[in-house]
Design a protein around this nucleic acid. Structure first.
Lengths: 198, 198
DNA sequence: GTTAGCATGTAAGGAGTTACATGATTTT
DNA sequence: AAAATCATGTAACTCCTTACATGCTAAC
C-alpha cells in the first residue's frame, strides 16, 4: 500500500545498497535525484535516519581504522533493510507511478526483475496517458475564450508529457527486446512529432 | 518576498479575475493547471477561500436571479483583491521561478507588463541553467561506477531541462520581438540538440 | 589561531492530504 | 423515491522546511 513517506526511506535504502555513507553525503546524492530542483533539508533527513535506525533497517558502521575520524556517522543496510527494500521495490501500487516516486524507483531498477520494471513503466505510461486524455477532454469543453499564455502553457505541457510517453514506450520496448538488442535504451533523436491530432 | 502559501492565493485570484466562480469549479480549474498531476483537496481550498474572505481579497456574490439555486457560494474579487493580485504578480523574487510558482505566474502573464514577464522568464531560465551546470559538474566527479538506469534517468532529465530552456529562450525572443512578428511563440520542431558539451 | 565549510541535530510551524461529515440537486 | 454527483466544510495528521544550535576539521 506504500504509505506516503516511504519515498525517502526507499531512496536512502537504495543509496546505502551502493555502499555505506554518512548523512551529509546521502543528502548530496538525494538532492541530485529528488525532483530535480528540490533540496532535502537536514530537518527531514536526520530524523528519517534515526527512525530507520530504530526500525533496524540501517545500522551505524564502526570505522575500522585506528584513528576513527569521528564526527561523521556512517550508515549501512542491515539484512532487514535489504528485505524491506526488496519488499518496497516489488510493491507496485498506484503510488509507484506518481511523479516523485517513479523517479526513485526507476533509479534503482537494477535491483528488481524485469516483470516489476515493466509493470512500473507501463503503469507510469497509462497514468500519463490519462492525464493527456483528461486535459484534451477538458480543453474541448472550455474552448471558448482562451488566454494566449494559458494556451501556450497547455501546449508545452502536453508536448512534454507526450515526450515522456514516447520515452517510456522506448524503454518498455527495450525491456521486452532485452537479450536480443543491445539494451542501451534509445536516445532516439526526437521522434518527428508523429501527428498527435485529436 | 512572496511567503510560501501565496501560490494558491495567486492562482485563485487569477482565476477569479476571469469571472466569478464557486469553490468546486475553482478546484476543477486549479487541478488543470496545478503541477500537472496533483489534485488539490477540498481541505486545502475551502480554508484558503475562508482566509481570503476574511482578508477581504474576495467576497461572496449574491446571485441575482429570483430562485437563488442556493448551496453553491460564488466568489468574486474585491478591489483589494485586484490590488493584491497585481502586487503579487509584479513581486519577482527567486520564488517566482520555482517549479510550482512559475507555471501559475505564466498562466496569468496577460495581467502583467512585458518587463515583468521578461524578468520571470529570464529568471526561470537561469535557474534551470544552474541546475544543468550543477548536475554536469556533479556528474563529472561521480563518474566512476554508474548504474545503467541511473544514467538513463540523468540523460532524460538533462534533455528535458535543456528542452525547457530552449522553450524559454524562444518565449523571451518572442517577447522582445513583440510588435514586429506575430507573437504566437514558436512551436519549433525540435532544435537538433545543439551540442551542450562542457 | 581564526575563518570556512563539514557534519549533526532539534523545535516550531506551514501547507497540504485523508478521512470524516453533511446536505442539496439532478438523474434514473 | 433511490442513487449519483454536486457542493461545502472540519479535524487530525504527515511530511517537510526554516531557523536555530552546536562542535569538529581543514585551510590560510
Amino acid at each position: 500500500m506504500a504509505r506516503r513517506g516511504e519515498t525517502l526511506e526507499l531512496a536512502v535504502l537504495g543509496l546505502l545498497h551502493e555502499g555505506p555513507m554518512h548523512g551529509y553525503e546521502l543528502r548530496k546524492r538525494l538532492n541530485l535525484m529528488l525532483g530535480w530542483g528540490r533540496v532535502l533539508s537536514y530537518g527531514s533527513l536526520y530524523p528519517a535516519l534515526k527512525k530507520m535506525l530504530r526500525g533496524n533497517l540501517i545500522k551505524e558502521v564502526v570505522p575500522s581504522g585506528p584513528q576513527s575520524r569521528r564526527q561523521r556517522i556512517v550508515y549501512e543496510v542491515t539484512p532487514q533493510g535489504t528485505e524491506e527494500f526488496a519488499r518496497m521495490m516489488s510493491d507496485v501500487g498506484p503510488s509507484a507511478w506518481e511523479d516523485d516516486t517513479f523517479d526513485i524507483r526507476f533509479r534503482f531498477f537494477s535491483s528488481t526483475d524485469m516483470e516489476i520494471r515493466l509493470r512500473v513503466l507501463e503503469g507510469r505510461r497509462s497514468r500519463l496517458q490519462e492525464r493527456l486524455d483528461r486535459v484534451q477532454r477538458e480543453l474541448s469543453m472550455t474552448q471558448a475564450e482562451v488566454d494566449r499564455y494559458a494556451a501556450e502553457l497547455q501546449r508545452h505541457g502536453v508536448e512534454s508529457v507526450e515526450r515522456e510517453v514516447r520515452w517510456l514506450s522506448d524503454l518498455i520496448n527495450a525491456e521486452r527486446g532485452q537479450g536480443n538488442q543491445p539494451v542501451l535504451p534509445v536516445t532516439s533523436p526526437e521522434t518527428p512529432s508523429t501527428s498527435t491530432s485529436t
